[in-house]
Structures are given as structure tokens and as C-alpha cells.
Amino acid sequence: MLTIEHLTKHYKGSGKGVTDLSLHIAPGDVYAFIGHNGAGKTTTLKCVAGILDFDGGTILVDGINLRENPIACKRQFAYIPDNPDIYEYLTGIQYLNFIADVFAVGAGERQERIKKYADEFEITASLGDLVSTYSHGMKQKLALISALVHRPKLLILDEPFVGLDPKAAVILKNVMHRICEEGGAIFFSTHVLDVAEKLCNRVAIIKDGTLIASGEMEEIVKAGQSLEDIFMEVVEDAGE
């Protein structure tokens, strides 16, 4: 579903970024991407989402090269940043309608999906209000609904659980599982290692822009240890 080969992206001036990062996410994967602040998680996700240009490497989404055919690639996925700055001058329903228009979702389907997810996330009553009146959590929920309204094959999420209430977090986890059961994939960054351990079948750990571990969760987290233990161990080993 998503193949990242030798991705390199360095910011001018600071020189920080991501160096020679390779990952493969298969259909059905819930892939956690973990690392300390400034490790390069958001940079990687933004490169995959086509927001940042990159210096080297290849990104393939469902076999389509992001550099060669960005629009076809973007049709396959939905991206939600850690702080969803959504058009504050639109109402919630106008924003969802706009996204549905861009992805050419039929009128019947968009109504059905918006109703379903808005009810699930309990923001239906607020859909007629301007996004500027929404709380952070409501914006997060609206962004999630906009991502789900076009049934993407790949969901790219940056810290998706930040700001969500417990019920919404459970719903999101269920939605993530459902997408994977239907042959889709999830690639998300998180600092909540417990969630990553329980939710994901695969994990990648990044430090200072370099991938230091990746693979099946079961292989990485050995018996008697938690992902937190492994994370601390691996990160400290890489620092030595």
C-alpha cells in the first residue's frame, strides 16, 4: 500500500530532517511510527502526504509514484496533521461537502457517510456552525470525518489521538480496524506507546531522522517487555 524507499529530506539551514528512510506498509497494516520530539515523524508523514518536497528517495502509494503522479497518489489516501487547522470561514458541513466534491463522492454516499460518522463522533448538531467556533477536539473529529468520507485506502495520521475524548478515541480505533479489515492501511505517528502496542501490528522507531528499528510488533516487543521498554532500549542503544 505504501512503500518508502531511501527517503531523504533535509531542511536548509538546520540540516535536520530524515535520512535514507525505508518502510513498507502492506494492505491490512496498522503501522505505528514512534520517536522523540523532532525525530522526523511529521517530516516523513508530510513527505508522504505530498506537503513537503523531498531531496531523495521514492514514495509509492498503491504502486503509484508520488513524484511522477501526485494527484493519482493523493486520491488513494487521506492525511490529518497533528493540529488540524481547518478553514475557519466554512461551516463543518461546508468543509465536508468541499472534500466530498474534491474526491467526487456521490450525493447519496456523502450523505450516508457524513451522517454515519458525524453521529458516531457526536458532532452532527455542530455541522451547521462555523469551524472557528469548534474546540480542538471537534476540529480533530471533523478532520477525521473528512478523511473517512471518501473511503481512502491509506490513512496517514499525525498524532490522531491528541485532543480526542475517550469515546471518540475508541471509535477511531474501531474505524482504523475496519479500514484494515477492508484491505486498507493505517500509518500514524504517536507518543502514546500503550495505544501503539495494542492497536498496531507493525511499528517503526525513528531517531534523529534515521530509522533505528522496524518490523512486526510481535517480533519487536518480546515476551515480558512493553513497547515503552523496547523504545527506551533501542533509542539509548542508537545514541551510544
Binding site: 458541513i93 450525493a107 450523505q111 452532527t124 455542530s126 451547521g128 456552525d129
Partner: peptide
């Protein structure tokens, strides 16, 4: 802010592509 918080599900029927 000026939030009415009164959007009705029936209004979704008016959505047009």
C-alpha cells in the same frame, strides 16, 4: 463565536455535488 448547535440530519438531504 456564534454557534447555534442546531444542525439537523435531515438537512443532509440538501447536499449537492
Amino acid at each position: 463565536g456564534f454557534a447555534r448547535h442546531d444542525y439537523k440530519v435531515e438537512e443532509l438531504g440538501g447536499l449537492k455535488g
